[in-house]
């Protein structure tokens, strides 16, 4: 099962809105597998959207349990055709993105969302998610609409270069 390269800006596909996926599409499950394998490959990655791998599918995966920041969460979530039904408790937090490896930005997101989607077995479900998990879902869902986190910056002081620690001498 392949680990696929993550598209980085300025790849034009990242700015493209993806149409709803057909649950009967035979490729859908293999797209989700590619996404899983790719997320596993990137330490610290807690979410991926299909368009980041060049797939025109409305799919995202998140698993914030992989992060030290995680509070209550549902572990691994595979979402196909997700739609947010309710959003509340807006708060600004700092985000990064595999498609912009050297940048961080403060972005305002709902800390509580109710959404519906198809799960990894393509069964419809509804869920309430909060805090970091809710933020991750909104970030990935934006990718399905061609919206990148830099598009959500609301002040000149909200963009940062990721300061990398010097690499460990071997």
């Amino acid at each position: 099962m392949p680990v696929l390269p993550v598209l980085t800006y300025p790849h034009p596909f990242l700015k493209t809105k993806v149409a709803e996926s057909d649950p009967k599409d035979p490729q859908l499950l293999s797209v989700l597998r590619d996404m899983m394998d790719t997320m596993d490959h990137h330490a610290g990655c807690v979410g991926l959207a299909a368009p980041q791998l060049g797939h025109a599918y409305r799919c995202l995966i998140v698993d914030v349990s992989r992060s030290a920041r995680a509070e209550e969460n549902h572990g691994l979530l595979k979402l196909v055709n997700p739609v947010i039904l309710e959003s509340s408790q807006w708060k600004v937090s700092r985000e990064g993105c595999l498609s912009f490896p050297d940048l961080l930005a403060n972005v305002k997101r709902a800390q509580k969302i109710r959404f519906r989607a198809l799960d990894g077995d393509l069964n419809p479900f509804e869920m309430v998610s909060s805090n970091f998990e809710a933020v991750a879902i909104q970030h990935e869902l934006d990718h399905l609409d061609g919206i990148l986190f830099l598009d959500r910056i609301r002040s000149s002081k909200d963009l940062f270069e990721r300061r990398k620690a010097p690499s460990q001498p071997l």
Binding site: T8, Y9, D102, L103, S155, S156, K157, D158, L159
Partner: peptide, 21 residues
Amino acid sequence: TDLRTHVTDNNGVQLYSLTLD
């Protein structure tokens, strides 16, 4: 009233970002 710019390496591409108030 405020302007910031960054040049960062985005996977081999020089990415320019400008934020201004």
